[in-house]
Design a protein around this nucleic acid. Structure first.
Lengths: 340, 340
DNA sequence: AGCAATATTGCATTCGAATGCAATGTCATC
DNA sequence: GATGACATTGCATTCGAATGCAATATTGCT
């Protein structure tokens, strides 16, 4: 019996070839950019393809050509929850360049291996990771010439491409301005110990304060979220009511801290207490908060990430570049700042 | 010359077969659940596979088996920006069931066709759409037996599976409670005309008000975001300062409205003005707002979505079920509510 | 031991498109 | 009309795993 074209079977290049009276190769060449094909033939093939609703099968293309145009995007759940702009921008930039997003949301460190296993199986052309990868994991990709671009984190040992917002510089700026406004008594609401940017910001703040002769600054750890910011403020202000400025390593924690300071400690912000955040996320600009913060240039960063990844895919031997973007200081109304 | 195993080539099932001294079929059967293989052979194969770092190639598997375990997730950019929980939960639930997320973020209606083209090429096993699809587009999927589950929207003509929060019922409840608190003068801050849930909520509010004999309620359209909520409030309160209650079809618009009402119109919320939202998103619970709203049961809804999709993939002939989840009324502090 | 029943294994083919190579076809030029 | 340069086309193979079928190997049982 002949191969039946059942109503719901997808049309293949052979079906199109038969309909157009050409070989399968000709069909393939019609859809390949720069394929050698006569204009007249091309016409006929495209017409047949349109009639049959033919679309090249990405699996077959990927299998034979070794290029899938799939990009694995690894993002920690909390990054996406608190900063959804990042994923949205990444997705758009990738789509613009004709790449597809295979999304993996990580809730915990322990899932990474299982997820990389999947990434691996799908023969992705590249990886964008806004989640922590171990050196061994990065090496695995490097060894197999799969480009990886790290977003807002960088690797220790392995030389790996990355795009980051300069957290340290941003945090230093903030602290410098707080100091020059005369603040001398600080509290820090940091992130989890395993957060790259969180730790970078915490260290930068502590170092800058130490430079100014201020040591033993109390640190409370949160999870970047609203609740934990409030908890941190409660604990810090409860322990030392004389604290003049709270340095929070994320906007959402700053917001939580502002609410608790105002409502439970009856402080006026910024008159009685300065609070700064980090990220420049949307809610930070809301009238009730207007958080003084460092805004990450997300659009430029995501654009750079995708551009860098494209380049690496073109030339996998190219060295991984590290790009550092300066954050922009947002002078909100949640902190008293001095002149720079 | 023999096929060279260069350092960075991926191991294939043939490589493993050679290393373990068995046929490629045996290797394949080791990784297939329930494959007929002797325990001893299995041992040997798995050992060889581990040594070579072998992982089945998902493209080849998908091509030959017709199952890719890929799920296309279509989500409107604004849904993800204002309500990131949805995508995060969906991704996790899908991952739990051993399915992968091919993500598409839609900024505008016009991108849909290009994106469905891509979805199509990738032979996904199913689609979850939190974006509008036309009847023709839905039919296309149905015709080819590709299950689609709509999230928070439902189709008109086509019978399609869907999971929704009962926006109409929720909005009616809110309005009922506002009415029973004695409010008589309302304003509505709605969503864009092409938003499914936005319109559903707007209509429900208008209908419920009409039932109470209140007609010609002013409606301003926003885009679900903070700014547009503030703009809406400014316009409504500017036009009619006697308005007693603002009905916003999203929490972020309610928040924007609260800020503008407080800071630009000097109103106490809820004493001078009641404002209600919808969604039960994170920021709505923040102390400064505590928006009175309807919380969508996101976890249950995403769970149901994924379960439904799994079932449809198992049995594509099954009829698409429509599941409607009741929202939970959150009595915040942004509105005066009467008894039910 | 002998035979059937069952469990393992390998062979060969398949999925759908891309591509090197050889075979045509076309055209210009002298 | 012959010759060469170049453009089109098709053939055959390839990517890597799954699977129906036939060939063996084991096992149980008499």
């Amino acid at each position: 019996m002949n191969k039946q074209i059942s109503a719901n079977r997808r049309a293949t290049s052979y079906d199109v070839a038969r309909a157009a009276g050409v070989s399968q190769s000709a069909v393939s060449r019609c859809f390949a950019p720069g394929g050698s094909i006569a204009p007249a033939t091309r016409e006929r093939v495209l017409k047949a393809a349109a009639e049959l609703g033919y679309r090249p099968n990405a699996l077959a293309q990927g299998l034979i050509s070794g290029r899938t145009k799939l990009i694995a995007v690894l993002i920690a759940s909390h990054t996406n929850r608190f900063y959804p702009e990042v994923l949205d921008e990444l997705t758009h930039r990738l789509t613009e360049r004709d790449m597809r997003v295979l999304l993996f949301a990580l809730r915990s460190e322990s899932e990474v291996d299982a997820i990389l296993d999947q990434v691996w199986r799908h023969s992705v052309d590249g990886v964008i990771s806004a989640a922590r990868l171990s050196d061994a994991q990065l090496q695995m990709f490097e060894q197999h010439r799969i480009p990886v671009v790290l977003y807002n984190r960088s690797a220790n040992a392995v030389s790996s491409a990355s795009v980051c917002c300069d957290s340290a510089a941003g945090e230093r700026d903030l602290v410098t301005r707080l100091l020059s406004a005369g603040h001398r008594r600080f509290g820090i609401i940091a992130g989890p110990e395993d957060s790259f940017v969180g730790e970078e910001r915490r260290r930068a703040a502590i170092d800058r304060l130490a430079d100014a002769g201020i040591n033993d600054v109390p640190v409370i750890r949160g999870d970047f979220g609203y609740e934990s910011g409030g908890d941190g403020a409660r604990e810090l202000l409860g322990t030392d009511p004389a604290i003049e400025a709270l340095i929070c390593v994320s906007d959402q924690m700053a917001i939580g801290a502002i609410d608790v300071a105002r409502q439970q400690f009856n402080r006026s912000i910024p008159e009685d207490l300065s609070i700064v955040g980090f990220d420049g996320s949307d809610p930070a600009t809301w009238l009730s908060y207007q958080v003084t913060s460092i805004r990450q240039p997300v659009r430029r960063m995501t654009e750079a990430t995708v551009a860098m990844l494209s380049d690496l895919i073109e030339d996998p031997e190219a060295a991984g570049e590290k790009r550092l973007f300066a954050g922009q200081l947002i002078e909100g109304r949640s902190a008293r700042l001095g002149t720079p």
